[in-house]
Computed example of a mutant assay.
Amino acid sequence: MTNCMYKIVLAVCLGTTLLSCTKEDNPVVVQPLSAVTVTNIAADPTSMTSATGQQPVAATGKFTLYSLKDNKQVANTDSATNKWDVGFRGTTIIVNGGAIRSGQGGAYVYTGTFDELTSVPASVTFSQDQSATALAITTGSGKGWYNYNQTTNIVSPIPGKVFVIRTGDGKYAKVEILSYYQNAPVTPDANSIARYYTFRYLYQPDGSQTFR
């Protein structure tokens, strides 16, 4: 073997060795997704009137908009954008998608536990908000996410109900409502302050339909 050929072979071998070492020394580590718990999201709360002791209608009538991607509230001035994913007003929850929205969002109510929901079920058909009364997440006791006790006037999340959310920009998340009362009391009573959501969610940023 000539000296020139020897140098070429040596260079190729060294390059292959260095490339191999680089790949092994710097493996790609995929971080697992983790759920986030959000507390005391005000859903247009009101206070008792001193004259009658009765709770008046919603103070503003506006939804509190929330971005699951950014984990923060979004201003109502951005309601016509895809910056938000879900909105809260009283017991009503809206999504950013449908005939009356600008985003790509939708929702499906999954029956099961939050942890066992590891991907968007293959058979899911996402509903969207078509009008103020035709919403993706149905309102009313026992129809969507909560039960209302007429005796105690307490709103309680239905166990085993998890929202599969398609976000305003077409990504996916799972959401579970944990409480409807300020500071999420374990056993709400007549003194508990309503219209404050606590929920946990897991957002998939890569656009896939898995929650791992």
Rank of each mutant, 00 (worst) to 15 (best):
Q104H: 04
G144I: 11
G90P: 10
R89E: 12
S102Q: 13
I154E: 00
T139E: 12
W145S: 03
T139P: 15
S123G: 10
I94F: 12
T138G: 07
V109C: 03
T152G: 04
Q150D: 00
T91P: 15
G142A: 07
T138R: 05
I93W: 08
L117V: 07
T139N: 10
T91A: 08
T125L: 03
T111P: 02
T138Y: 04
G105P: 01
S156W: 10
S123N: 15
G144R: 00
S156E: 15
G140K: 06
R101E: 14
W145D: 03
T133F: 00
N149T: 10
F114N: 12
S102D: 11
T125F: 03
G105C: 09
T113V: 03
I154Q: 01
Y146R: 04
N147I: 03
I93T: 10
A107E: 04
A136F: 02
W145T: 06
L135D: 02
S131Q: 11
A132Y: 09
G142S: 04
N149D: 11
V109K: 00
Y148L: 07
Q104N: 06
Q128Y: 04
A99V: 10
T125Y: 05
I93F: 07
G90W: 13
Y148C: 06
T151A: 11
T133I: 11
V155I: 13
G106H: 05
I137A: 11
D115Q: 13
A107L: 10
A132N: 09
F114E: 06
F126D: 08
Q130G: 15
Y108E: 12
G142C: 07
S123L: 12
N96M: 03
T125N: 13
N96D: 05
T125Q: 10
E116P: 00
I94A: 14
V120M: 13
R89Y: 15
T111M: 04
N96T: 12
S102T: 13
G140T: 06
A99D: 12
P121Y: 02
Q104S: 08
G98W: 14
Q130N: 13
Y110F: 14
Y146G: 11
T138E: 02
S156H: 08
K143A: 13
E116A: 12
S127P: 00
Y108V: 15
A122I: 06
Y146N: 12
V95M: 05
A122K: 07
G105W: 05
I100G: 00
I94Y: 04
T118E: 12
K143D: 03
Q128N: 07
T92M: 09
T125A: 12
Y146M: 02
G140A: 10
I93Y: 09
G103H: 00
I100W: 03
N149P: 00
A132K: 06
G98H: 01
T91Y: 04
F114S: 07
Q128T: 15
G142R: 01
Y146Q: 02
S127E: 08
T91R: 04
G144H: 03
T113C: 01
S156V: 09
G97F: 00
A132V: 09
Q128M: 13
V95K: 05
G106M: 09
A99N: 11
V155D: 05
N153S: 08
G112P: 07
I94T: 01
G90S: 05
G103W: 00
A107D: 13
V120R: 06
S127C: 03
L117E: 00
T152P: 02
T92V: 15
F126V: 14
Q150H: 02
G140L: 08
E116K: 14
Y108I: 15
I94P: 00
Q130M: 02
G142E: 06
G105E: 09
Q128V: 13
G90H: 10
S123A: 15
